[in-house]
Computed example of a mutant assay.
Amino acid sequence: MNLSTAEQLLVEQRVTNEAKSTAVAYLLWILFGGFGAHRFYIGRTGSGIAMIALLVIGFGTASVGIGALFIVALGVWLLADLFLIPGMIHHRAGRAAR
């Protein structure tokens, strides 16, 4: 599909307007990472809900000893997100441009 210059500018403007801030995503990761707030912000609601589920199940089963496994899994996921956040934001911007 060939777009005119004006149409290309409109697409770029829309992508810029809908872009999520990497700084805000990292701030949410730092403050509310265990709740998946950074994933909700980026638009990955399903994985945000999964992070909340891991947190709740982890604390709910901590008294029987297996809760630590869920908390560790969440911690590993949060550590991975430290490096994945820029890519998730870039992917979202690419989807918006299409």
Rank of each mutant, 00 (worst) to 15 (best):
L74F: 09
L69I: 15
L78D: 02
L79H: 11
F70C: 09
G48S: 09
V72W: 13
L55M: 15
V56S: 07
I66G: 00
T45L: 15
I71A: 08
A50E: 03
G48I: 11
V72G: 01
L55G: 05
G65I: 07
V76L: 13
M51L: 10
I42C: 01
V64G: 00
G48Q: 11
I52G: 07
T45W: 15
G75T: 09
G58N: 04
A53V: 15
A80V: 14
G60T: 04
R44E: 12
G75V: 04
L69Y: 15
G67Y: 04
G43Y: 07
A62S: 13
I57T: 10
I57N: 01
V56I: 15
I52A: 12
I66M: 04
I42G: 00
A50P: 02
A73C: 12
G65R: 07
L74R: 05
A53H: 06
F40R: 01
F70E: 01
I49S: 03
R44L: 13
A73E: 07
I52D: 01
I42V: 10
G75S: 09
L74D: 04
L79G: 06
A53E: 08
G75E: 01
I42N: 00
G75I: 02
W77M: 14
V76W: 12
V72D: 02
V56Y: 10
L54P: 01
V64F: 13
F59P: 00
Y41P: 00
A62V: 14
G46R: 13
M51D: 04
A53Y: 11
T45N: 10
S47T: 13
A50S: 13
